[in-house]
């Protein structure tokens, strides 16, 4: 039987700003909370699916694309978390690894925001 998730208050809305990820310990687990460029919040386990690195200490960035060799483009509307160890990149919107067809993805937690308060379900 699945364990029932508990609701934890983790801070005020103003504590979470676009472009950064805040690492918190909630009920004994390290999670990172990030605000996306579209204003939504995401909570992820601070553990890279690749080698277990503290991924929330990595870079949050957009994504480079290219229509041809040398034709560099930058998509700043996509929020990507880059692991500090091997550089694997995960889309914070979906949790999936960027450009990789495998099953690798971030462990994500449900997060709620209301009346200036933020809650996570673990």
């Amino acid at each position: 039987m699945a364990r029932e998730r508990q609701r934890f208050r983790i801070g005020k809305s103003i504590d979470f700003i676009v472009g950064s990820i805040k690492v918190l310990v909630v009920n004994g687990r390290e999670i990172g909370v990030a605000r996306l460029r579209n204003g939504e919040l995401r909570a992820v386990m601070n553990r890279c699916p690749h080698k277990g690195a503290p991924i929330c200490q990595g870079i949050i960035s957009g994504v480079w694309n290219a229509s041809a060799p040398g034709e560099l483009e930058f998509d700043e509307n996509r929020d990507v978390l880059v692991c500090p160890w091997h550089g694997f990149q995960y889309d914070l919107g979906t949790g999936t690894e960027v450009c990789w067809k495998g099953a690798s993805r971030l462990r994500m937690y449900t997060i709620e925001e209301g009346d200036g308060e933020v809650f996570v379900f673990i």
Partner: peptide, 17 residues
């Protein structure tokens, strides 16, 4: 493949593994 997963943004014209 492993390095491209981490550093593909250096060569974004490489569109698949």
């Amino acid at each position: 493949d492993r390095t491209w997963r981490g550093l593909r943004h250096e060569v974004p014209w490489v569109r698949k593994a």
